[in-house]
Nucleic acid binder design. Structure first.
Length: 470
RNA sequence: CGGGGAGUGGCGCAGUGGUAGCGCACCUGCUUUGGGUGCAGGAGGUCGGGGGUUCAAGUCCCCCCUCCCCGACCA
């Protein structure tokens, strides 16, 4: 056995993460601090994830649109909490065309303001509602401590923005997106179980009345906020004068939501499933679902492998042929393992002589000999199992690393390597601040049964999920 | 912004005043190929920038720049 390919996850998790990102050729740093080059393999994963999210976003009634990158600084200032929340991380353009601008423009950190300026024009009547738009875009939030995918100054995301006639309609949509877009994608596509709940006032989006979140547990027990869905009340409607005539003819402000998920999800994928050999991708997000490896040239191995790759593609599998027999077998195996390819088929003279091929699973590491004629079926069968295995492992890990805490001190202790459930009443009177000082935060609030609490700020009878977070 | 480090080949690093090196990666050839093969040869450097000391500076002194790590905010 040769030297380890990666720093073992248990030895130094952050270092392991960086090495996976580099060696699986997912991304690298850009020349400006905090910027990120997403490499072709990483981008291919993102495109698959994007397609899954986009389909679900449209299924809740959204239409895609595009709004400008540059926002007048004055727009940000219209909503007091919003500008206060985002000011520290704004990139501001002061010069254009060789001259100083009369009014500086902000590079969008999020698009509530500029989109709502349009929505104000588009919405006149209750018949125009609900209005549901989504955009895929890059946004910029100046980051002091960047980490590839998890926290970069520029990142890619989708942001949905809606206007409704009533508070109930807005709330229902915010929650529908949380469940049917985000949670469903995370569980069914990414194979990452999530904890859903309401953010505390402290963690709430700047300008929102209620923020809902999906929180995942990573391999080191830390939490990652994977998506948020906000009820905006009438805050932005008042700031941007979004009014409509209701059925009775009176002019009233619309109720709104916004919601987003970003390239940070790539980080979740890596940290939730990766192991000491590298990435482990769920089949739905694997650019290459099965690689057919010519183990060793000769005796028709190349031809048999090429034929199998063709058959797999015909069967709807994203399959690739690796016939680089001038590179050693071991190196190629290591490369595909780093990249997280779910199923590997090894074809060599020795296999063929026995009328078989070797099928290896990335998730369990299991290797089996199967007859040549049954290879396609064997691969599709295993692909169907990988997702459930990854999801099951992640859920088991989360459950093992989640404990019930009866005091702030117990919660801090438990949050060192997992999640703690804490009676939310203990957050009052500076309790949440004390958690914060111990580098621990409230990820979300839930009912004792794990359900979603009502909107608003009430803590009564709720359970706080507490953890260290990315 | 406060504290602590580091800038030497693509990446990671060594080099206490005297001919700029090592590992990985890269190129060529042979060898090997069923879990990161081995051997031989080769290409690649304004040692962050400027100034100073010295016969001689990657190394010592001064100034500047940049980056990284730890603390307060964040999808």
């Amino acid at each position: 056995m040769a030297a380890p390919v990666l720093t073992p996850r248990a030895d130094d998790f952050p270092r392991w993460y960086q090495e996976v990102v580099a060696k699986a050729e997912l991304a690298e740093n850009g020349p400006v601090r905090g910027t990120m080059v997403i490499r072709p393999y990483g981008y291919a994963i993102w495109e698959l994830l994007q397609a899954e999210l986009d389909r679900r976003i449209k299924a809740v009634g959204a239409q895609n649109a595009y709004f400008p990158l540059f926002i007048p600084e004055a727009y940000l200032r219209r909503e007091a909490e919003h500008v206060e929340g985002f000011s520290p991380e704004l990139a501001v353009v002061t010069h254009g065309g060789g001259k100083e601008l009369e009014e500086p423009v902000v590079v969008r950190p999020t698009s509530e303001t500029i989109i709502n300026a349009s929505i104000a024009r588009w919405v006149q009547s209750h018949r125009d509602l609900p209005l549901i738009v989504n955009q895929w875009a890059n946004v910029v939030r100046w980051e002091l401590r960047p980490r590839l995918f998890l926290r970069t100054t520029e990142f890619l995301w989708q942001e949905g923005h809606t206007a409704h006639a009533t508070e109930d309609d807005a709330r229902a949509l915010a929650l529908r997106v949380l469940r049917e877009v985000y949670e469903d994608t995370m569980v069914q596509v990414m194979a990452v179980p999530v904890v859903t709940g309401r953010k505390t006032a402290r963690e709430r989006f700047a300008g929102a009345t209620t923020t809902w979140t999906c929180e995942g547990m990573m391999g080191d027990g830390k939490a990652l906020q994977m998506a948020t869905s906000h009820e905006l009340g009438q805050n932005f409607a008042r700031a941007f004068d979004i009014t409509f005539s209701d059925e009775t003819g009176s002019l009233v402000h619309a109720w709104q939501t916004s919601w987003g998920a970003s390239t940070r999800l790539m980080g979740a994928l890596i940290m939730a499933h990766g192991d000491d050999a590298g990435l482990r991708l769920p089949p739905a997000l694997a650019p290459v679902q099965a690689v057919v490896l010519v183990a060793r040239a000769g005796d028709g191995a190349g031809e048999a492998a090429a034929a199998l790759a063709r058959d797999l593609r015909a069967a709807g599998v994203r399959a690739e042929l690796d016939d680089r027999t001038d590179t050693s077998f071991g190196r190629r195996v290591v490369d595909w393992e780093l990249k997280g390819v779910p199923v590997r088929v090894e074809v060599g003279p020795r296999d063929l002589a026995a009328g078989q091929v070797t099928v290896a699973r990335r998730d369990t590491g299991a290797k089996e000999a199967v007859p040549v004629g049954g290879a396609v079926a064997a691969v599709t069968e295993r692909l169907a199992q990988v997702h459930a295995t990854l999801l099951g492992e992640a859920a088991a890990h989360r459950d093992r690393a989640t404990v019930e805490a009866a005091s702030l001190a117990e919660a801090v202790e438990a949050a060192q390597d997992g999640f703690a459930h804490l009676p939310a009443a203990l957050l009052a009177d500076g309790g949440e601040q004390r958690l914060h000082e111990a580098a621990v935060s409230v990820r979300c609030l839930r009912t004792p049964g794990g359900g979603l609490p009502p909107s608003g700020d009430d803590l009564d009878g709720l359970v706080a999920v507490v953890a260290r977070a990315y």
